[in-house]
Design a protein around this nucleic acid. Structure first.
Length: 211
DNA sequence: CACCAGGCAAGTA
DNA sequence: TACTTGCATGGT
């Protein structure tokens, strides 16, 4: 068995399934993917609740909502002016290219879709990949700061590896399986939150110490 | 009080 | 190209 699969088994055994993404519809998941940029999920959850409370969590409602009003609703998520603008960019893009339909958007080839979606200002590689995997169900491995930090600290990847290099390593090492990619990324985030915080370089309790 | 959280783009040299 | 900085609320 290869190393990345071995680590996956260890994490799954240790933490159990994480049941991601915490959102009910592809649209909600997509919104959450933008709101969670460099932000704790508990704060994002408050922002999403604000939108749900007023029945604003649909494509047409958010698309019609002025950016200033949107910013006000999503304040708890932090960077609210920035994120409101980013959500608007994304909604405008989907309105223009796919008639405002996520189903239509996800019906296209996901490689092509990824190239298009990262041209939207505010949608970088991780946000794009999260949308593709968790909202679209595409076999895309999501890399985040925890992935980099955890695997670099355990000397599995080099410190200077970039997003796409890390992603390629995972994709080439693992079977192309949506459920696996989904669970693996969620387990990495769980591991990061618990054992691999920025200021705590060493984690004797980390399940990966066994590897 | 200081530090961190499921990034990204723009600015600097 | 390779760093650095702004964005901002809420929890520990």
């Amino acid at each position: 068995m290869n190393k990345l699969l071995e680590i996956y088994e260890i994490l799954l055994e240790h933490f159990g399934p994480q049941g991601w993404w915490p959102g009910e519809t592809p649209f909600e998941i997509m919104v959450g993917a933008v709101l969670t940029q460099n932000t704790n999920w508990t704060n994002v959850s408050k922002a999403i609740d604000n939108l749900k409370k007023e029945n604003l969590l649909s494509f047409s409602k958010l698309h019609d909502l002025p950016v200033e009003a949107l910013a006000e609703k999503i304040k708890p998520a932090g960077y609210f002016n920035l994120k409101a603008a980013r959500l608007k960019n994304l909604l405008n893009f989907i309105a223009q290219e796919y008639n405002g339909s996520l189903a239509e958007m996800f019906a296209m080839d996901w490689h092509t879709l990824r190239e298009a979606i990262v041209t939207v200002k505010g949608i970088g590689p991780e946000t794009a990949d999260s949308i593709l995997l968790y909202a679209g169900g595409k076999p895309v491995f999501v890399v985040d700061t925890y992935t980099h930090r955890i695997f670099a600290r355990h000397n599995i990847i080099a410190e200077e590896e970039g997003y796409h290099e890390i992603q390629e390593y995972f994709v080439l090492s693992l079977p192309e399986d949506v459920a696996l990619f989904n669970e693996y990324h969620a387990l990495i985030v769980r591991t990061g939150k618990e054992f691999c915080k920025k200021s705590k370089p060493l984690c004797s309790q980390c399940p990966l110490e066994k590897v």
